[in-house]
Design a protein around this nucleic acid. Sequence first.
DNA 1: GGCGTGTTGTTATATCATAACAATATCAAG
DNA 2: CTTGATATTGTTATGATATAACAACACGCC
Lengths: 159, 159
Amino acid sequence: MMKTKGFAFHDHSACKTEGVSQAVDFCAQNGLQLTPQRRRVLEILLEKHSAMGAYEVLDILREEGLGSQPPIAYRALDFLVSNGFAHKIERLNAFVACAHPGANHAPAFLICRVCDSVAEAHLEPDDSTLNTAAQKAGFTVERAVVEAIGICPNCEASA
Amino acid sequence: MMKTKGFAFHDHSACKTEGVSQAVDFCAQNGLQLTPQRRRVLEILLEKHSAMGAYEVLDILREEGLGSQPPIAYRALDFLVSNGFAHKIERLNAFVACAHPGANHAPAFLICRVCDSVAEAHLEPDDSTLNTAAQKAGFTVERAVVEAIGICPNCEASA
DNA sequence: GGCGTGTTGTTATATCATAACAATATCAAG
DNA sequence: CTTGATATTGTTATGATATAACAACACGCC
């Protein structure tokens, strides 16, 4: 199965395998429990490879008998986000598997307004313009969310 | 009345007066209707000078007899956002008056995670790191949302 | 007047998210 | 191996955010 990654075709099954095994390793090393539920939610996000709403994830869990109520999905997603295996796209109220698990993160997201696909880019840790502005205001930045809205190459080509 | 602006004290009533008159001018020049409802919502945002939820705005409209149902608030807010008089803070599902109406916008928001106050900073139009990443991916950026989470100087001081 | 367009009023409902508490699993210490 | 502390899951209920759909009204223009 081939899907886009960073809007480019790639071997998507490998992408899923790697994502899961990196999570397994990280959890083992850090005393975190990657339970079947959590693991399955990570797989679901990796399979889809675009932003999914919590209820969309929940529908799949329900079909598979892994849970049927909203908190089930939200708790698994919170776990994945807290530990860097997934990100929340605020703009879409949706979640996406992290494309670079383990990496020291300052992610930026490229969100296609046509097909809602999401690519994860990485910015230099010192996004100087933002930090300069924050310093002037006396504000301490702990985390920055960067979401760019636009058109992905695939949708541009079909237009 | 003095409130924070960019986390610093300033004459807040002037801030409101200016914001409204700039909107009046812009609408007159561009054939837009700044109706009493829309104008009042802008005033409400300018008065509060921090992020407000749509329902919070609606509560005030209701008290004043300017509308009582959600679409009333959402439509006015959409108008203000569409025309650059206000911004939506995705992280908070909330709205804030624009601190630099008329300016060619690439706003970044500094959001205090303690008190939820919001300051609007401006980045250089060519936030080069993001644009470089987007170009590599073949993605056309139309708009970028930058939201930094952290601690404002006032909350830092009280800690 | 009659029409087109934009705005407002109203009802209903869709969508996203969490509080609260009970039940169960896990695991280390005694 | 049992006891207790902690983490996770199950369940019910509700809260919070947002929009669809259509009716009513206002206003300018021909």
